[in-house]
Structure formats: structure tokens, C-alpha cells
């Protein structure tokens, strides 16, 4: 006799329940009860009316495991259609990731390192930052981690680039409409708080593990959030007096965006880009579980084989990479900020 039989009977649902009676799979409690020697288990007098408990009283009410199975079934049902749309749409991402990876690895170190240093100098205009970048890159070479560091860096480059390309327009759209903002913010919150491992699972269902876009998507979904948020914020913070002046002088919407809003929002957007770089680096490590190459795969290897040295060196390498990326992007941010306040 199950705990809620009386309730089911009282509601007059007995016939409905029995009509669909079949041998449902047993719940964990029933299994335990059976293995316990066949005696009827007397649980608490009033168990919480969960799906499993109600199932005992009425066979037509599903069990909790039906819920999770249902989600998976539903996902599998739409998978072919989803794949049909997403596959070609995301294919360029694979090409870009593979191409950049090839470029970073095929270029000999004595060209690659000077090019990276030139980029650091051009973005930051700071000798000390560039010198620091140089010492870190040489250190990677020295400890034979140059190759993997370049793999990680190439993924970060591509994913950050795409995040900016997609995130800035989304942020602009959000800043123009309060309703869009109300709709997008919860999605961004979800993307940021959902444990990162969780969205690896549907990706494995959707795409083949051998495709590089699978980790590209995982990284972008996680890292795009700050650039969207800060673009929206930056544009909303543009001085209302200046916007009024732009209106008074008859600027078109496009002129207002390109001449006033984006330039004035730039410091905030750059702060978002800095965050995006940091987050894509963090995610690249986790994405090594779905075959992303680079320092992350060494960390994973260290965990798998309990190899302390390999794990720690790779981990420190990621820290160093994070520090140089952060320093360079922060120096760029400071430079943008300065042209308008200083002197």
C-alpha cells in the first residue's frame, strides 16, 4: 500500500490510474525493498509527494528518471533538424580554428615570436609589457611548451575575435531597446552560471568530437557574455547631453552610433574584451575534455595519470599566458582611456 493511495482515491483518479496500468520499471526504493528480503518497507509515515512516491500510488504518474530521460529523448528527437541548421552555420568556425592552429604551428618560432611581440607593442605601446611578453614566450620555448602554448593562444585568438564580432552588435542591439535587454540578460546569466561542463554534453550529441568547432562553440558561448554586457553598458552610459547635441545637429542613427556612441563606449567595450579573453582562456582548459588541444590537454593528462609535474607546469603555463594576455589588453584599455582625459 503506497502512501498516497488514499489521495488518489479521494480525487477519483483511481480508474484513470489503473486504466494505463503496466509493469513500470521499479523505483530505487522498491529495488531496495526487494533486496532487503521481501519485507514491506515502512518508510516515513508521510513521505514527500515526489514523482517517485506518487508513482507507487498511481502507475500513470511518471518517475523522476522519466523526466531526465524525457529531456534526452526530446533533444535526440530534434537533433537531426538542429544539426541540419547548425552544422553548416558553424562550419566556418572549424575552418578558422583549424586554419589558425595550422598557421600558429607552421610558422617557425623565429617569425612567430617577433610577430607576437610586434602585436603586443602595437596594442599596448608599452616597452615593459612587451618585454614581459617576450620573456614569457621565450620561457615557454625553453621548457618545450612553446608548441602547446601556441595551440592555446590560437584558440583564444579565434574565439575572442568571433566573440567580439558577434558580441558587440548584440550589445548595441540591447542598448537600443529595453525590451531586448530584458530578454537577453537572463540568457546571459544562464550562459555564465551554468556549470561549464554541462554544455559540453549537448555539443557532443550534436557534433562529431573530431571537429574543432565543438570546443570553439563551448568557448565562445562562455566567453561572449562580458563583451555583450559591457557594450550594452558602455552605450547606455554615454553622456545624455552629448547625445542630445548629436540629435540637435541632425546626426543620423548610424552617425550617432559610429561617431558618438561607439567611440565613447570604447573603454567599456575594451574592458569587456579583456574579460572575454580571460574567460576564453579559462574555458579552453575545460574544453580539452572535448579534444581541444593546447596546455589544457596537458593538465588533463596530468590529472588522468596523476602526474604532478606535468599538471603543475601546464597549469603555471596557463597562468603565464593569462597574465600576458591581461597585461597587453589592459595596457590597450589604458591607452584608449588616456586619449580623452589626460594632459
Amino acid at each position: 500500500m503506497a502512501a498516497y493511495d488514499g489521495v488518489i482515491d479521494g480525487l477519483g483518479l483511481r480508474d484513470w490510474c489503473d486504466a494505463g496500468k503496466e509493469d513500470a520499471p521499479m523505483s530505487m526504493a522498491q529495488l531496495l525493498a526487494q533486496s532487503g528480503g521481501g519485507e514491506t518497507s515502512n518508510g516515513p509515515a508521510l513521505p514527500f509527494p515526489s514523482l517517485d512516491v506518487l508513482h507507487e500510488a498511481c502507475g500513470r504518474i511518471g518517475q523522476t528518471r522519466d523526466l531526465t530521460a524525457g529531456i534526452e529523448q526530446g533533444f535526440l528527437a530534434v537533433r537531426p533538424e538542429l544539426k541540419l541548421v547548425l552544422d553548416p552555420l558553424t562550419q566556418p568556425l572549424s575552418w578558422m580554428l583549424d586554419g589558425t592552429l595550422w598557421l600558429f604551428q607552421a610558422t617557425p618560432w623565429w617569425i612567430m615570436i617577433p610577430v607576437l611581440l610586434l602585436i603586443s607593442w602595437w596594442v599596448s605601446r608599452s616597452a615593459s609589457v612587451t618585454a614581459f611578453v617576450a620573456s614569457v614566450l621565450l620561457f615557454f620555448g625553453f621548457i618545450d611548451h612553446y608548441e602547446v602554448a601556441m595551440q592555446t593562444l590560437s584558440i583564444v585568438f579565434v574565439c575572442t575575435g568571433i566573440s567580439i564580432l558577434l558580441g558587440v552588435p548584440i550589445g548595441i542591439g540591447m542598448s537600443k531597446s529595453d525590451r531586448a535587454q530584458r530578454m537577453i540578460v537572463p540568457i546571459l546569466d544562464l550562459m555564465q552560471t551554468m556549470p561549464t561542463f554541462v554544455y559540453l554534453i549537448p555539443l557532443i550529441f550534436l557534433f562529431s568530437i573530431t571537429e574543432s568547432k565543438i570546443y570553439g562553440i563551448a568557448v565562445i558561448v562562455y566567453a561572449i557574455v562580458p563583451v555583450i554586457r559591457l557594450t550594452d553598458l558602455g552605450i547606455r552610459l554615454v553622456d545624455r547631453d552629448v547625445m542630445e547635441a548629436a540629435d540637435a545637429f541632425g546626426l543620423t542613427a548610424w552617425q550617432k552610433l559610429t561617431r558618438v556612441q561607439l567611440p565613447l563606449a570604447l573603454p567599456n567595450i575594451m574592458a569587456g574584451v579583456n574579460q572575454t579573453i580571460m574567460m576564453s582562456l579559462a574555458m579552453v582548459v575545460i574544453a580539452s575534455m572535448i579534444a581541444a588541444p593546447g596546455l589544457g590537454s596537458l593538465v588533463l593528462q596530468g590529472i588522468r595519470t596523476i602526474d604532478l609535474g606535468v599538471g603543475i607546469i601546464a597549469g603555471l603555463g596557463i597562468v603565464l599566458l593569462a597574465v600576458i594576455l591581461d597585461r597587453v589588453s589592459k595596457a590597450a584599455l589604458a591607452r584608449v582611456d588616456n586619449t580623452r582625459k589626460e594632459h
Binding site: D239, D241, V242, E244, A245, A248, F249, R259, V260, P263, L264, L266, T339, R340
Partner: peptide
């Protein structure tokens, strides 16, 4: 029509 503003409203950049 052109306009002059109390808080100047110049483009700082």
C-alpha cells in the same frame, strides 16, 4: 538651427 548647450556637450574624444 544650431544649438549651444549649458554643459557644452562637446565630443570628448
Amino acid at each position: 538651427m544650431s544649438m549651444v548647450f549649458q554643459k557644452f556637450a562637446l565630443l570628448p574624444h
